[in-house]
Simulated assay, not measured.
Amino acid sequence: HPNITHMNIHAASPLPPGYHDLGAYDHGVAPEVEDTDGHELEPMRRLQRRYGKFVRQFARMYPPDAIHAHDWLTMEAGMIAKEVSGAPLIVHVHATEFDRSGEHSGNPLVHEIEQQGLMMADRIIAVSRITKDMIVKNYHIPPDKVEVVYNAIDLADLPPHEYDTATYKYLEDLKTDGYTIVGALTRLTVQKGLTYFVRAAARALERYDKIAFLLSGDGEQRDELVALAARLGVSDRVIFTGFVRGKQWRDAYYLIDIFIMSSVSEPFGLTALEAAHHDTALLISKQSGVGEVLHNIMRFDYWDVDKLADEIVNIARSPGLQSALKRNVKDEYARLSWRDAAERCVALYQASAERRWA
């Protein structure tokens, strides 16, 4: 992290440059540990164990005033640091295993780590009320132990961009012919509710022909979604780009007119803020936390394919509605600030440390 100057960063577990596939989300297997016992999380578990040993030694050498651990990936290390130093532990929940597993049960080992981490935490930060309610209900945590701190976006990470119409020429040609482009930039996983997205696309096309759909991203559901689009007869209107970054990523946002977040369970949903910045109308599932801070959007239950299809068609057919949604949501997202979120976190550190010495 050569550009980080506001904090000290210590390399706990060296990895090959650009290597990210540790089996945490897509069940990949690191090539250097192919002889493991076959557990789908074993590469990540090995990394976590090494990280925990590093944190144990580090916390003894440099006792912290407070510990801030993020999600199940670092909860165990946070508990180790608390055990060694006695400092208060603040656990920041960006997603639970209930979120990541969509409509499935999830990994019991991850559930166990989350349960322990949340019980041992002195304070918990949730990225939305939806997430707080899930922590309280599913992990039996007292509500007054959980603070909601919303995410934001840093506009410095989204500098002015010159849109290249050649990047997605097929869709740009359709747009020139009067088509509305509906899209999502996301991981293609069960959590994101994308089978409902594709089914809603097919229903919308039955009612209004001048729509095309863009799905940018990759994940274990890609082949399933491609096959579903073909089976529903809409493969010529649902375009899969694969994983995109940089110029292609920015161009995808500029291309689409309507952004859809169809998540089964989305603790927050930063991509909705990014889409708002790029002048799109937003259709957000009621199971997504970002709907708590954005109100000039249209909502639907992730499973309600007919309602989603109706909303897509209504926006596509009404330039006035589309323009109003784009304009008004921009005013809302611009009021969200990482500085405000950081100040809330610092206040929790200070209050937790003061209680420790009270």
Score class of each variant (00 low, 15 high):
41 L>P: 03
133 D>V: 01
113 I>D: 01
146 V>F: 05
345 C>A: 10
70 H>Y: 04
209 D>T: 15
262 S>M: 07
350 Q>V: 14
16 P>M: 03
126 A>Y: 05
99 D>S: 08
66 A>I: 03
306 D>H: 13
95 A>T: 06
60 R>V: 00
197 F>S: 01
38 G>H: 03
342 A>M: 12
59 A>Q: 05
259 F>M: 06
159 P>N: 06
82 K>I: 11
62 Y>G: 04
61 M>D: 11
263 S>C: 07
204 A>S: 14
237 R>A: 08
335 R>V: 11
183 G>W: 13
239 I>N: 00
243 F>N: 11
45 R>H: 10
8 N>K: 15
115 Q>F: 06
91 V>Q: 14
153 I>P: 01
145 K>Q: 10
315 I>T: 06
277 H>I: 10
261 M>Y: 03
322 Q>Y: 01
97 E>R: 07
223 D>C: 03
209 D>M: 10
14 P>A: 12
302 Y>D: 06
309 A>S: 14
103 E>L: 10
66 A>Q: 02
73 L>P: 01
126 A>H: 08
130 I>T: 02
88 P>N: 08
112 E>I: 01
180 T>W: 09
250 R>S: 11
263 S>V: 03
142 P>W: 02
163 Y>W: 03
53 K>L: 13
260 I>P: 04
286 K>V: 02
299 R>I: 03
202 A>E: 14
254 Y>E: 13
190 V>M: 05
125 I>S: 07
152 A>P: 06
156 A>N: 15
211 I>L: 15
293 V>R: 07
338 W>E: 09
298 M>R: 12
353 A>S: 06
46 R>W: 07
342 A>Q: 08
185 L>V: 14
172 E>Y: 09
148 V>F: 08
157 D>F: 04
248 Q>R: 15
328 N>T: 00
170 Y>H: 07
118 L>D: 08
44 M>D: 13
135 I>C: 11
32 E>A: 13
341 A>I: 13
191 Q>Y: 04
85 S>D: 09
214 L>K: 03
78 G>M: 11
93 V>G: 06
136 V>H: 04
149 V>M: 14
34 E>P: 02
204 A>Y: 12
102 G>H: 03
319 P>S: 08
271 T>N: 02
185 L>H: 03
294 L>R: 04
188 L>V: 01
132 K>N: 08
279 D>R: 13
237 R>C: 05
271 T>H: 00
115 Q>N: 07
270 L>K: 03
274 E>C: 04
166 A>V: 12
162 E>R: 13
341 A>M: 12
134 M>Y: 02
205 L>R: 14
125 I>V: 15
211 I>Q: 10
245 R>G: 07
106 G>K: 08
26 D>V: 01
15 L>Q: 10
196 Y>F: 12
75 M>I: 06
254 Y>N: 14
228 L>C: 09
286 K>Q: 09
178 G>Q: 08
24 A>K: 12
75 M>L: 15
313 V>F: 06
312 I>H: 00
55 V>D: 01
263 S>E: 05
91 V>I: 13
187 R>I: 05
338 W>S: 08
270 L>G: 00
162 E>Y: 05
205 L>Q: 12
288 S>T: 06
69 A>Y: 00
297 I>Y: 09
341 A>G: 15
2 P>Q: 14
150 Y>N: 13
312 I>M: 09
358 A>Q: 09
153 I>Q: 07
146 V>S: 10
302 Y>F: 15
37 D>S: 07
277 H>M: 09
64 P>A: 01
262 S>F: 11
54 F>Y: 12
